[in-house]
Nucleic acid binder design. Structure first.
Lengths: 189, 189
DNA sequence: AATAAAAATTAAGATATCTTAAGAAATGAA
DNA sequence: TTCATTTCTTAAGATATCTTAATTTTTATT
């Protein structure tokens, strides 16, 4: 567990064992069962969750009562509702475990404290945030440039393991396609 | 000019006059004429541009040769192609002044140097990046939740000054609507 | 003011994607 | 194994949005 996060952090900044221990002591581990919620609509997202193992989804419920998935996250990725977490405002989204998922989590207060006491962490999260932003911009690009079918093949090629671990209707939702239409698309080719 | 960026930075971190002077000395001012390019496709985006005054757009050219606008930016906002700037890879997008635009710009090397020498700036840009990410997530939300017409009214209400300063076909492009269809939508209501 | 260029509108027909509803298949629980 | 629940598929009709092409309006240039 400590090894995993150490390896992850060291992708971005060099941290010695003492620093790792210090950060590690601020992280809390928790396991969520399949379908358990990490966050519910209308509550402030108090934590940033680092996923050690598992899969989660972020989604909101639209006017018609349908779930719309905005994000999946797996091992070595962060899950939070950024806007809610940063601004401490109620979230419009849910975060839920798709499989049993083990995380390490940090509160905003803890994180702010770490920033002040350890400038290296400020750098670490500056870089992590840049990467999130880039990932997000890329996602928008995909939607801007591709139609439903192309998005599906792109996603299926890029992240084949997801196709196995996540039910198809969730993938459809993430790709902004109705499950019925995705079925048609798959048949067509 | 210095006053403006001082006010802007002080929204996020406290900087004294010496610090401001130090940063300011690293920034280069430049004015772009209407239609002049800050960045062209296939070149690495070397700078992060802080807009003092003006309007710019980021766009790419799609398969059919149409311009697709992904971002507008105005006074007190940053313009860059994040992925290209951070990873030093060729950009797929253009950045162009819509009006005469005055900016202060920073190279990546300068910025990295500033981070190392002044942890406060690491914080400043950590926060700025968080805000960009949040702005981006919000934009995605709008597209996820609203249909063309609603996007237009939302945009028109939220940013009425844009409607005046930017030609309608560019707004259509940003909203992912064809100019013809936007015309229809406006007529309908 | 006259002309050229750019931007906006209109309308008809085409297409991608959704909606609804029902049934089939797969998975999980007893 | 059986039953119940969840997920996936199929198909017909509906709708949002695009395409093309022509026309009008606005803005910029001489």
């Amino acid at each position: 567990m400590k090894e995993q996060i150490k390896r992850y952090f060291n992708r971005y900044v060099d941290l010695n064992d003492i620093e790792i221990d210090m950060i590690y002591s601020k992280l809390t581990a928790k396991t969520f069962q399949k379908k358990e919620f990490l966050l519910k609509e209308n509550t402030v997202c108090r934590y940033n969750y680092f996923i050690l193992k598992g899969v989660i989804r972020s989604f909101y419920i639209d006017k018609k009562g349908h779930e719309k998935i905005t994000q999946f996250a797996i091992d070595n990725w962060w899950a939070t509702n950024m806007e809610s977490f940063i601004n401490e405002t109620p979230s419009t989204q849910y975060i839920q475990a798709i499989e049993e998922t083990t995380v390490l989590y940090l509160s905003k207060e803890t994180l702010d404290l770490l920033y002040t006491e350890h400038p290296k962490l400020e750098r670490l999260f500056r870089i992590i945030t840049e990467n999130m932003l880039i990932a997000n911009l890329r996602k928008s690009d995909v939607f801007l440039q591709m139609r439903s079918k192309e998005r599906y093949t792109f996603f299926a090629e890029k992240l084949p393991n997801f196709i196995q671990r996540v039910p198809q209707y969730m993938i459809a939702s993430y790709l902004e396609i109705t499950p019925e239409y995705l079925s048609e698309l798959k048949k067509a080719k």
